[in-house]
Nucleic acid binder design. Structure first.
Length: 329
DNA sequence: AAAAGGGACAACCGCGATATC
DNA sequence: CGATATCGCGGTTGTCCCTTT
């Protein structure tokens, strides 16, 4: 028991009783918490200040949302986690009424397993290597097997599930690279995510795997209507493309993506934009990340691993924030 | 019916960052 | 400016309860 705040008094540990809750609620409602270390004494509790703080923040606060995490909240968690990693407090800020502890617990007990079941590494959101191996030894690799997977946790996982189920693992190396791996721009400027058109060589890659070709052709008849889908081959995949994943290339590197985004998703795009704006605000960047979706120029956009287009400035900003955080460490 | 196992969630611990003295 | 106190965060552990054996 090394907390400074609980040196003096005998402190109780373990679960809180309703009586203790009531004391804490009454005290904080009237006086506010002030210095947490003084709360136990003033509220008549045999707890340390730290324990009081935690109990209030995670359980007693009146603005907490009760009930289980919704599908939408789950998707937000996955999307932001893909970008920010285990920064639970940051993630929780996007979910009003949810605590970092709640998000963390939900991640560990639920989302993590779903991602693993879908063959994704929950830490990196990349394909798991043994999943690759398994896929590589399956005969029915051409059939999109979305329905055989668990409920998707987000749009991008659907996408990935569809893609990976039809494509040999040899073509699917390290599909998702999280932000922290964004390289520094020259002169130590903020990291820069190039626009798609600045990768002219992408278009020169040719798809080599007949299985993938077959899969794409079958998919094209459903969701990529009338579009040709250039695919790059990982055998000639240059490492400089680290910040893109191949499925993003497939999904977003080319014109056809517009027909791949379901209408519902386009509507949700606005929500995502608001999310980004709020994300930027939370790191002290009060810029507007929004852009006119009707005028949105896909050729001038980059597809982030979370499966959404963002305009370059918001991407740069996120990249910069992520980079700055890394530099700080 | 009882024990074991596992999931969900609450709470604790240690550490780094920040504030205050 | 260093020492100490406090806060906030993320990882980990503990506890309860339900399901399975």
């Amino acid at each position: 028991m090394s907390h400074q705040c609980c040196r003096k008094q005998k402190v109780k540990r373990g679960l809180w009783s309703p009586e203790e809750d009531e004391k804490l609620i009454r005290y904080i409602t009237i006086h506010g918490h002030g210095s947490w270390s003084s709360v136990p004494n003033l509220a008549g509790l045999e707890r340390c200040g730290k324990s009081c703080r935690l109990r209030w923040i995670n359980y007693l606060r009146p603005d907490l949302k009760r009930g289980s995490i919704t599908e939408k909240e789950e998707r937000i968690i996955v999307d932001i986690h893909r970008i920010l990693g285990n920064r639970w407090a940051q993630i929780a800020k996007h979910l009003p009424g949810r605590t970092d502890n709640e998000v963390k617990n939900f991640w560990n007990s639920c989302i993590k397993k779903k991602l693993i079941a879908q063959g994704l590494d929950p830490n990196t959101h990349n394909l798991l290597s043994d999943y690759n191996y398994k896929l590589n030894h399956e005969n029915n690799a051409c059939k999109p097997s979305y329905h055989s997977h668990q409920q998707p946790t987000s749009t991008v996982t659907v996408l990935n599930s569809q893609m990976i189920s039809g494509i040999s693992s040899t073509d699917m190396k390290a599909p998702l690279i999280p932000f922290p791996m964004i390289p520094h721009a020259p002169d130590n400027n903020p990291p820069y995510l190039p626009l798609l058109h600045e990768f002219p060589s992408i278009l020169t890659y040719e798809y080599q795997n007949p299985k993938t070709q077959a899969f794409l052709e079958s998919t094209a008849s459903q969701s990529l209507v009338g579009s040709s889908v250039p695919i790059l081959s990982s055998t000639s995949h240059p490492s400089e493309f680290g910040m893109f994943d191949e499925s993003c290339m497939w999904a977003g590197g080319y014109e056809p993506i517009q027909s791949m985004i379901p209408e519902k998703r386009q509507v949700e795009q606005q929500v995502e934009i608001e999310k980004i704006t709020s994300e930027l605000a939370s790191v002290g960047q009060n810029m507007d990340a929004s852009f006119e979706t009707s005028n949105f120029d896909f050729a001038e956009s980059t597809l982030l691993p979370c499966g959404m287009y963002y305009n370059q400035s918001s991407i740069d900003q996120l990249a910069w924030d992520s980079w700055a955080l890394q530099e700080k460490k």
